[in-house]
Design a protein around this nucleic acid. Structure first.
Lengths: 220, 220
DNA sequence: TAAATAATTTAGATTCGCCTAAATTTTTAT
DNA sequence: ATAAAAATTTAGGCGAATCTAAATTATTTA
């Protein structure tokens, strides 16, 4: 299929894939920002990737992945998330320590390695951050939003929505607790007496939230 | 300590380390041959590594590793062999399938990853090829030579010496069986009737050798 | 809609790691 | 010991991936 891609090329493809989740066509500047590089460098690379058929690119018109490019992106993400799972489940890393290491491991090329790792790990469906792990055919499990109330204990999740987020009282509370869209949450304990729960967030804070607040937070 | 080395730089250091096992000073051409590259490229790189203090190098005088360089080499070898052990023990690869993959994995930089992997694997002392795995302080277990006669069944080993290798009859036999210093051997079966044994080598050949030949071969 | 601003691309350098061909140094052999 | 051979280095170039500064195109706004 594809000859061989450099680490840099793979990182561009991955970035474009992630940026495409919100808008289908991605700008040069957005890629530059995500990769901490300069727009001129991005233009250079887009030309190269375009000639390799992994993206659709026209001057001044933005970029999107080709079918081939999307396959490559999903494959990299699969590797990244499987390695993260490995690091947490087998090597006892904390879920917030593994990203950097997985950024390196995701570029290891052996197909066989990935398949065997997947098998060894028991074909996990979600990584330690709660993100879905694509299967060997590139299929990604649809991920529903659920109320934080219904989240399994110890299973990390990401805040994806806040119901009633127009209320300033709620916002005040969220600001105080430093919770927002994208905040990673793990439930450490649930107290049945008042349905409050102890949670741990991104920034390694552990504290208790009320049933009312938990009901307002949606996670995936 | 060391800022950061590229994969290419690490590979040069590793090659020089291995070549130094036989002769303490290594030539440009030897490095070129080992890395499948050209002498001119090696000269380039030696200049760079010299300025980074990881080697001792003088024009036309050959190269050797500095103390720092040796530490780096041992660290890379440690990673390589731990990953090989992981691939065979945990992911069920065959011992002759893992080298290439480990060549990639050995460049993953996280110190913590290596330590945790080592712990997870139970601090193995030898890799699946029978080579010693340096510990976290860089100490390498001394490996005695034993006669092939005394080698445990199924335990891979490397031919490290041939007693009576001046005899042309022995050489004739060794040449015919394609066995020499460095040949990897695994004993598959031992026959007590005549103390002959069935062995498997490097090149995936399986055949029987006599007690006399086994006694002449020393392995580690 | 025309000017100002923002986004993007081009032009021209730089570093890394490699190459070939030519020059130089070292080693070997006569 | 000197000529021939082998090893090594230098010179000059190339592609990948980056950069800055300048030019160009697109978008916004007055």
């Amino acid at each position: 299929m594809t000859e061989h891609l450099s680490t840099a090329e793979e990182n561009y493809i991955k970035s474009i894939y992630h940026l495409q989740q919100s808008e289908s066509v991605v700008s040069t500047n957005e890629v530059a920002a995500r990769l901490n590089t300069k727009a001129a460098s991005v233009t250079d690379m887009l030309k190269r990737l375009n000639s390799k058929q992994v993206i659709h690119y026209e001057k001044y018109k933005g970029v999107s992945l080709s079918i081939e490019g999307e396959k490559i992106a999903i494959d990299i993400i699969r590797k990244h998330r499987l390695w993260e799972y490995f690091l947490v489940e087998k090597l006892q890393f904390k879920w917030d320590e593994v990203h950097e290491i997985a950024e390196e491991l995701e570029h290891i090329s052996s197909k066989q390695l990935v398949e065997r790792l997947d098998n060894y790990l028991g074909y996990p469906k979600f990584d330690p951050h709660g993100d879905p792990i694509p299967d060997s055919k590139g299929h990604i499990q649809f991920q529903e939003q659920i109320s934080l109330t219904d989240l399994t204990i110890e299973k990390p999740a990401t805040v994806s929505a806040v119901v009633g987020s127009q209320s300033s009282e709620l916002l005040e509370l969220l600001t105080h607790k430093n919770i927002g869209i994208g905040t990673r949450i793990v439930i450490k304990r649930k107290f049945s007496y008042d349905n409050s729960m102890e949670i741990e967030t991104n920034d390694n804070c552990t504290f208790t939230i009320s049933k009312e607040l938990a009901m307002a937070l949606f996670v995936r």
